[in-house]
Design a binder for these strands. Sequence first.
DNA 1: CCTACCGATCGGTAGG
DNA 2: CCTACCGATCGGTAGG
Lengths: 196, 196
Amino acid sequence: MAKIKAFRNGTKKDAITQKAAGLFRRKGFASSSMRELADIIGVEASSLYNHIGSKSEILQTICFKVATEFNTHLQQVQGSGKDTLNKLENLIRFHIHMMLDSYDEVFVANHEWKQLPEPYLGNFLEQRKTYENSLIEIVSIGVKKEEIKNIHPYVAVLTILSAVRGLEFWHRQKKNLAVEALENDMVNHLLKGLTK
Amino acid sequence: MAKIKAFRNGTKKDAITQKAAGLFRRKGFASSSMRELADIIGVEASSLYNHIGSKSEILQTICFKVATEFNTHLQQVQGSGKDTLNKLENLIRFHIHMMLDSYDEVFVANHEWKQLPEPYLGNFLEQRKTYENSLIEIVSIGVKKEEIKNIHPYVAVLTILSAVRGLEFWHRQKKNLAVEALENDMVNHLLKGLTK
DNA sequence: CCTACCGATCGGTAGG
DNA sequence: CCTACCGATCGGTAGG
């Protein structure tokens, strides 16, 4: 019975976090009230605190869940032994899939991390910097091995990360454009450019 | 005398708007209070209302000033008669300069437009959609004229706009990397790719 | 430009 | 899970 109760608490907390991700994405963290969130869940605001510790804790859960998923994937890529262009293609496709599959969570992690309280803010920024440095290292090795053209690795990484992040705008538009076509065109653009 | 008073009011409002842009960028619009802004200016919160109508009005001023600057430049490019790659390069460089020269304002326009009240929100989104459609048209013509490779124009525009927007992250880091080198590398990456 | 203040709303708690 | 409520803070106004 205790097990079932724990299970129920877990799913309820997960449900709150999921609904919160959607709300925070639409209105922003600071502009979202716990009363609004409670309305969406279908309870009174005070009842939320049986499942979560604070509003801020919800944001922490979202941000660090996303960070962990990206870090886990990066480690797989680093150990794959593929060449630079293959690694970058793999990373780009993963970012695209994450943005499309976990839109609310990735969006919130990208936009609302500033509202994290310390020490979570510092921890989050450190993880992001480490992630970015790993990508820079991958590009840097590619330049040295002459597998890709000579470019400042930092600029290439910034361009790639920013471009895939921009898919948050696509999600809202739903053009008559298949996901696979979009993904392939963006990979092609970022790796091979526009010039014929 | 009336003229001088109007002039002083004008600059004071401009000073408030400028300081607000920095504050809104750092903390977000909803998390920034008028009392904080007043502290930065060096007056009491109530005194701000001699120069501005509301907190929301400040955000409107910032967002539409930025939108107007981009629209004005776009019209120049459209009437320039250059080929597609030249037009795109011009647009990319302008976005980069805007991001570096008017960092706070561009950042706030990019991140906080959601907090605009109607009808400003609808107006802003319409302007942005029109701007985006103009860029899509430029790429589309380039594909038809075979000046650039075959790609979904929407994806190319999304990739370019997202990449230049990502320069907001660069601003904070101040790598030992000259602006010109960064600009040239990003233009090169977006137009010619990474592949040798 | 300031003092004084308002009603609304916020995140969160007590107690059942 | 709810009712009832708290202190803090918010954007903004009145009046001088």
